[in-house]
Design a protein around this nucleic acid. Structure first.
Lengths: 116, 116
DNA sequence: CTAAACCTTCACGCCCATGTGAAGGTCAAG
DNA sequence: CTTGACCTTCACATGGGCGTGAAGGTTTAG
């Protein structure tokens, strides 16, 4: 499977797929001509990656826990990867912090709109 | 008043005060020697700027509405600046959007932590 | 006189996934 | 053969308010 096919099949741009390779989260083989050669299972792989990115997990972190991605289905094998769980917990905290920051801004903004 | 004094009086670093000048939101005079010469009222001015920044208003926006900062007190003269109100409303929306994004991430993260 | 405070410009680092574009060249399918 | 899909590298833009440092020079206060 070449990059264009995977792009079409996964809904992710070819540029992004190359980016994932640069980041080491997706490592296709190569044809003799040098074309990226993706496995059929990479469609699922890409979906997993997208899910994690959409959850706020950076590619650097994803790379570190590639072995924790379930081969068959969508999810993550947390029971085998306590470190990953810790990572995700930490991320959740950061999200909470960001949320608080936004709420703080909102309050100050309300102050400006009201008392201003 | 020189930059160090204003920094001490306002609790803002000299570096930041220079930054504000670069961004055009604070325009001190100059002594003959070339030192920045701030007015006493700039202490309040800086506080207003900080408040707006803390609310998420960018320096570029602040610069556009400098005339809308109240001379005496803390607030903003919204009644004279309908455009500023619109700007702040827009910012509020963006904050809401950011909040939704974070909540989306949080949900996906929960999905990973639960079903993973 | 000396030390501290000030001045300037230039510029990278943070945080990060992607888009974009250029520029030049190769390969595969019809 | 032609065309479109692919390859490479280099690199900048986005959102932004700072921190930081270098490097060299001037001013003011005591």
């Amino acid at each position: 499977m070449r990059i264009g096919e995977l792009a079409a099949a996964s809904g992710v741009s070819a540029r992004a797929l190359r980016h994932y390779e640069e980041q080491g989260v997706l490592t296709p083989g190569r044809t003799r001509a040098g074309y990226r050669d993706y496995a059929a299972s990479d469609v699922v792989r890409v979906r997993q990656i997208r899910t994690m990115i959409a959850a706020g997990v950076g590619t650097a972190t994803i790379r570190r826990y590639l072995d924790c991605l379930r081969d068959g289905g969508e999810g993550v094998a947390l029971e085998l990867c306590p470190d990953l769980r810790a990572e995700l917990d930490g991320l959740a905290e950061r999200l909470t912090a960001q949320e608080r920051e936004i709420q703080g801004k909102r309050q100050r903004l309300r102050g400006l709109l009201a008392g201003g």
